[in-house]
Every structure is written in C-alpha cells, then in structure tokens.
Lab assay of single mutants.
Amino acid sequence: NLYFQGLKYMVPGARVTRGLDWKWRDQDGSPQGEGTVTGELHNGWIDVTWDAGGSNSYRMGAEGKFDLKLAP
C-alpha cells in the first residue's frame, strides 16, 4: 500500500496536500493548498498547519483512512 509506505516520511516539516480520503472541505484553503506537518504521527492521526492559515489533525491510518499525501 503506497500510503503505508509513505508514512515514514510523514514527519514534522514534511509538506502535504489532501489525499485519497479527504473529507474536510476547504480546511486546506480555497483553492486547495499545501501544508506542513507539525507533529508526530499518533494513533493514526497527524497534525498539519496549512499555508492558508488553519491547522488541524488528520487521519493517516486512523479508521483505515488517509486524508493526506506528500506534496509533489
């Protein structure tokens, strides 16, 4: 699974964008943008601060869902 392989790169400072299971509307800005991981992966959740200004926790394994992917 590509998403599980990418988890080791989901570290503080990593750049991310919305992924396969995104369901959080425009939390990442409008139009959709990139963000920066600000915390360690914990119980399948990870913290992100978006360039647009907001921050929140997103699923990276929790509930079998992956809200994020590494930015290109």
Rank of each mutant, 00 (worst) to 15 (best):
E34R: 13
Q32I: 09
T38D: 07
T38S: 10
Y58E: 03
G6E: 15
H42M: 11
G13D: 01
Y9C: 15
W45E: 00
I46R: 00
D21V: 05
E63A: 09
T49F: 08
M60C: 10
V16S: 00
V11W: 08
L2S: 15
D67Q: 02
V48F: 01
D28T: 05
N1S: 10
V11M: 09
D47W: 13
E63K: 08
D26E: 12
G35V: 02
A52G: 09
G29E: 06
K23R: 09
R15D: 02
D28L: 04
G44V: 03
L7D: 07
K23P: 09
L20E: 11
G13K: 03
P72E: 12
S57F: 08
E34G: 11
E63Q: 12
N43L: 13
L68C: 03
K8F: 10
L68N: 00
D51T: 03
P12I: 13
M60T: 01
M10P: 04
G13S: 04
G33I: 04
N1K: 13
N1M: 09
R59A: 01
Y3D: 15
L20Y: 12
K23G: 07
V11L: 10
A62G: 06
G33W: 06
V48S: 00
V16W: 02
V16I: 05
V48T: 00
T17D: 01
R15E: 00
G29T: 06
G19N: 08
W24P: 07
S57W: 10
D21W: 04
K8R: 10
L2I: 15
G33P: 05
V11Q: 09
G33D: 07
T17I: 14
G53Y: 04
I46W: 03
N1W: 07
W45H: 02
K69W: 12
E63N: 10
E34Y: 14
G39M: 06
R25F: 14
K65P: 01
Y58D: 02
V48L: 01
D21Q: 03
S55C: 15
W24V: 06
Y9S: 09
D21N: 08
W24N: 06
G6P: 08
V11S: 08
V37Q: 01
W45L: 05
T38C: 14
Y58N: 02
M60F: 09
G44S: 01
T17L: 12
T36G: 01
T36Q: 06
N56G: 15
R18G: 03
L20K: 13
Y58W: 02
V11C: 15
G13N: 05
T17N: 06
F66D: 01
M10C: 09
E63H: 10
G29A: 05
L41T: 06
E34A: 13
L70W: 09
G53T: 02
E40H: 14
A14H: 04
N1P: 13
Q32V: 09
S55P: 02
T38P: 00
R25H: 14
Q5K: 14
Q32D: 10
F66G: 00
T49S: 10
G39R: 10
Q5H: 13
L70F: 15
S55M: 13
L7W: 10
E40N: 13
R25G: 15
W50Y: 00
S57G: 06
G19L: 05
D47T: 14
F66N: 03
V11F: 09
L7Q: 09
L20Q: 14
Y58G: 01
G53R: 02
K8Q: 14
G33C: 12
H42W: 10
R18D: 00
V16F: 02
P31M: 08
Q5E: 15
G33T: 11
M60I: 05
P12H: 10
E34T: 13
W24S: 08
E34L: 14
D26Q: 09
A71P: 04
I46D: 00
P72N: 14
P31W: 07
V48A: 01
G33R: 08
A14S: 09
